[in-house]
Amino acid sequence: MVTGASGGVGRAAAVAFAARGARVALLARGREGLAAAADEVQRAGGEALVVTVDMADAKAVEDAAQKVVDAFGPIDVWVNNAFSGVFAPFTEVTPDEFRRVTEVTYLGYVFGTRAALRHMLPRDRGTIVQVGSALAYRGIPLQSAYCGAKHAIQGFNESLRCELLHERSKVRTTMVQMPGLNTPQFDWVLNRMPGRPRPVAPVYQPEVAARAIVHAAFHARRREYWVGGSTVATLLANAVAPGFLDRYLARTAFESQQDQHGDGEYAGPGNLWTPADGPHGRDFGAHGRFDDEAVPDSPQDWVSRNRGRMGAGLVAAGGLGAVVTAGMRRRGRS
């Protein structure tokens, strides 16, 4: 089950699971995006089930989970990914808007996790993947509601992980912290800034995120994955010098999060109260408007996903080195 599957990271992840022959339940509000996502899943080799649901509605999420179980059988993997956002200084975000972002982006994960556990715990099997962000650790300007929700997910997931370990449950939960990605979200968010929202460079393609999500789903003993060199750099810098990072972001992050094209406020369709593809009747797909600069691979992510093999290779190389050194010493003595 993939939430927020109508576009962006959720869409790319659904297709990546389908490429493994999976049955994929697609959860989101936008009907146009969901229908197109279902077509992509089937073309990739999977089976698709479309479930229209607002993740902020706990009862609707429970009903969606039951519908999927009735159609596809037990839930093996649940990916929490749905979100909404407001791109503006905190003082320009209304209380209702802040609440709505929190309900979708944070409580949507809580409700999704609860629905997943309801079906996984009796079987003592299953994996929940929380799609996070570098912003789960490091808040940045103009995204206070989103950053707050991602921080909340981080704390919630750690608490849940401890409880599952205490119960010796075989149900796993893991979190994948993402970098800036080329997704349609930057044309969806409610925007009150003069420029068009954009991700902070470097920008990665959503398929980079999708590969990490699929890997995490099948290697969930790790509590967390960091995706992209920029995520690693941000989180390490925040751990070492958060005050310096505050001042650096205050100077740079307003401009680096906006395309300075055109005059006046740019407002996209917005997905806060209604799905972005609803009234417009179009499918936004997985990619945003940054294909020209987005990179399709992350060496850091490859190393993260293959660190077991890397470790084995280093051990083997070390052993070979020891054998060669010993042989040279023996030849020297003779």
Rank of each mutant, 00 (worst) to 15 (best):
T174K: 00
V203K: 11
E167S: 13
P197D: 09
V203N: 10
K150W: 12
D187L: 13
W188A: 13
K150D: 07
H219I: 13
L160R: 11
L164A: 11
L164C: 10
P194C: 03
E224R: 06
Q205A: 09
L164S: 13
V203I: 05
A210Y: 10
L181N: 01
T183D: 00
T183R: 12
Q143D: 00
N157M: 04
W188T: 08
Y204R: 06
A217M: 11
E207Q: 14
C162M: 14
V200L: 03
L165P: 13
A145F: 05
N191K: 15
R196N: 03
L160H: 06
A210N: 14
R198A: 04
I213E: 04
V171Q: 10
F218M: 14
C162T: 05
T174C: 13
F218L: 09
C147T: 11
T174P: 03
M193I: 05
Q185T: 01
V171K: 07
H151M: 10
I153A: 01
E158R: 13
I213Y: 00
M193L: 02
G148C: 07
R168N: 05
D187G: 03
E158W: 02
H219L: 15
A145K: 01
A149M: 06
P179V: 15
L164D: 11
R221F: 15
A216Y: 07
A212V: 06
K170P: 14
F156I: 12
